[in-house]
Nucleic acid binder design. Sequence first.
DNA 1: TGCGCTATCTTAGCGTTGTTCAAATAAGAA
DNA 2: TTCTTATTTGAACAACGCTAAGATAGCGCA
Lengths: 207, 207
Amino acid sequence: MRESEAPESRPYHHGDLRRALVEAACRLLEKEGAQALSLRAVAREAGVSPAAPYHHFKDKSELLDAVAHEGWEKLDLAFQAARDAHTSPPDRVRELGVAYVCFASQHPDLYRVMYDCSRDKADMPAHVLENEESAYRRVREVLISAGADPSDEIGLELATIACWCAAHGLAEMTSFKQFEPLKEALGGEEAFLRGVLAHVGVFAKGL
Amino acid sequence: MRESEAPESRPYHHGDLRRALVEAACRLLEKEGAQALSLRAVAREAGVSPAAPYHHFKDKSELLDAVAHEGWEKLDLAFQAARDAHTSPPDRVRELGVAYVCFASQHPDLYRVMYDCSRDKADMPAHVLENEESAYRRVREVLISAGADPSDEIGLELATIACWCAAHGLAEMTSFKQFEPLKEALGGEEAFLRGVLAHVGVFAKGL
DNA sequence: TGCGCTATCTTAGCGTTGTTCAAATAAGAA
DNA sequence: TTCTTATTTGAACAACGCTAAGATAGCGCA
């Protein structure tokens, strides 16, 4: 007989170890940073042996993929909030960019895992770039509603990619020490981010 | 007495092991990629014991810093060439960006080491951002000669950073598989890069 | 010349990592 | 119950970054 409802009511050895591992990894990521995220440390944090994760993930990289997936979903929430908070299409373009870079600035280690996963495979997660409801498509749609010519498919694609590249570059560079005086002069990081994005065509004028 | 001029005339045990290690690291980087760049592998490639590098570099990261330094100097050469190949200021702005991203595309593993070093310390190498002859200053100068208002210091700074961010983002994303159809439609990677950069304000119109 | 000093390099070893494999364990089906 | 399967463990391997102690080679100075 089971010992009368363990706190988390684990029907199996651990319940859902896969989920527990991803959560432990996220916890570690916030507490200790990205360079402390070893497979063994994650197993330790989840209270399980070093070999246990291999029954749920083929690789360390596959666990990181799952963490990254979690990250993209959180980013998607921020995206939705930014879009819903503004009605004017040009505002929406700008605020989408700001939301993106702010997310990266607030979760630097998570963002690093997210992009390192993509970079290693030269491949973005399908639901980010390809889906109908993907973040990429969302940017594209907002660009159209802000005045971009929907019949110029190639131009539209290039503009969307330019958006994304500028946001990603800024996301990785905004923490550089050299920019701190400028941030202070502008009254905070967000003003700095807005200032930089304003010099990227698509963010500046919606086309 | 010395044994009559050994091939490389090594006055000491190895001659200049520091330099030899950096060169071995660069060789490994091209042959095996960035994830194969362990300290022990570098020592092996240089024909020396695993502990030898520690007399020339405090850390593994300090060796990588030296490799990155080498990379920034190579990039600087490409920058100079791009600037000297064009006379019209707007052309120069554009070609600087293209040269930057092309360099990253041609030496992806080196570029990765270069940026990972900066990212880990949230700090760009001094000679890249701060010096008078730095790449950053070079972009700034070209922006001014292309029509940017030199009295608007903050605006100029923001525009330069926007340049840099877009170039960096594109450099890291240009290898993504999802962009391949678009590259083909445009007739090659360079056309793709130019197309994307054309949607970044500073690259597009020099301001 | 010979002696010591110091920088350089090696050998050996520690603790950690990613990964594999055989054995142990528990859940569900018969 | 017993069999089967999914899950977890424990032990081990190779490779890693790094350290400490000893060997070696070049240099200055008597």
